[in-house]
């Protein structure tokens, strides 16, 4: 099924969303040469939430870096809305949420979230910029507008980092394990916050995670990657109704899917162990 789906997606509309075509990337030379990404192809449709999950070393973060234009590939190409990554960055089409909030400690939360509007202002023309204050309020940070990052909890800082990625209305959002530094309860709260916000502001999202429930509750599709070499092992459709909320965790459909993803993950890791 996944092969057919991938085939169908490759023929999808070429102008919207993200097209990753045959990306390969290796590090090192000679015997220590390792292939981090081996002919990875993936399409994210407009307004689609795609999670990438897999064991460490499967290249999921490298894939995100390549799509973000922060790292080059040896071969293959990435197109964002029909443009190269460089052109897309010039147009401020990419919103990045890194692993750590990476807020500037000398700026207030409001000034941190406003940063993408003030940077590269040439790309603001014809853009549906959001009001940073309003956005922060809808992220539940209305009380923290004039505060500094150090005065906020880790969860609130990460929420501000997500608001920073949404504020300039980019076509595609790239999130690199944004909740991995938080404790489990906090993580679930932030996850639900993102789910709520995204469901009313659908953007294409590439979301790297190592949490199975997180991938299921948020995504339309889950891309399962295998390591050595880093490649796509399986693409799993998440046919759960939207809008979703916490109640979904307790449903049979969710548990079935979770079982499926975990089994596939185990298979991928067993294979890696055999090699």
């Amino acid at each position: 099924m996944s092969a057919q789906a991938a085939q169908a997606l490759r023929h999808a509309d070429n102008d919207v969303g993200v097209h990753v075509e045959n990306i390969s990337k290796s590090y090192g030379a000679g015997e220590s040469r390792t292939t981090v990404l081996d002919k990875v192809s993936l399409t994210i449709r407009k307004g689609e939430f795609v999670s990438v999950i897999g064991p460490s070393g499967c290249g999921k973060s490298t894939l995100l870096k390549v799509v973000a234009g922060l790292s080059g590939a040896d071969s293959g190409r990435v197109m964002i809305n029909g443009k190269t990554v460089r052109e897309a960055a010039k147009d401020k089409a990419i919103g990045l949420v890194p692993q750590a909030p990476a807020l500037l400690p000398w700026r207030t939360i409001l000034d941190n979230v406003s940063l993408p509007i003030t940077v590269n202002p040439g790309a603001n023309r014809g853009r549906n910029l959001r009001d940073p204050k309003e956005l922060l309020r809808s992220f539940g940070l209305g009380h923290a507008i004039e505060r500094y990052p150090a005065q906020l909890s880790g969860g609130m800082q990460q929420r501000a980092a997500i608001a920073r990625a949404f504020v300039f209305d980019p076509e595609i959002l790239l999130m690199d394990e944004p909740f991995s530094a938080l404790d489990e309860m906090n993580r679930d709260q932030q996850r639900m916050g993102l789910l709520d916000f995204w469901q009313s502001n659908r953007k294409s999202v590439l979301f790297v995670t190592h949490s199975v429930p997180e991938a299921i509750i948020l995504s339309d599709r889950i891309v399962l990657m295998a390591a050595h070499p880093g490649r796509i092992a399986e693409i799993i459709d998440v046919d759960l109704p939207r809008p979703r909320n916490e109640a979904l965790y307790a449903t049979d459909a969710f548990r079935d899917l979770e079982g499926h993803v975990r089994t596939s993950l185990r298979k991928v890791m067993m294979e890696a162990a055999r090699v």
């Binding site: 973000a68 234009g69 922060l70 960055a89 010039k90 401020k92 990419i94 919103g95 990045l96 890194p98 692993q99 750590a100 990476a102 807020l103 500037l104 940063l115 993408p116 003030t118 940077v119 590269n120 790309a123 920073r164 300039f168 790239l174």
Partner: peptide, 20 residues
């Protein structure tokens, strides 16, 4: 990581210097 955010916004060298 903040530098990565600036780069994806296609911030100029001057903007990266000034803000970061």
């Amino acid at each position: 990581k903040a530098l990565d955010v600036m780069k994806t916004l296609h911030a100029s060298r001057w903007e990266i210097f000034r803000d970061l």
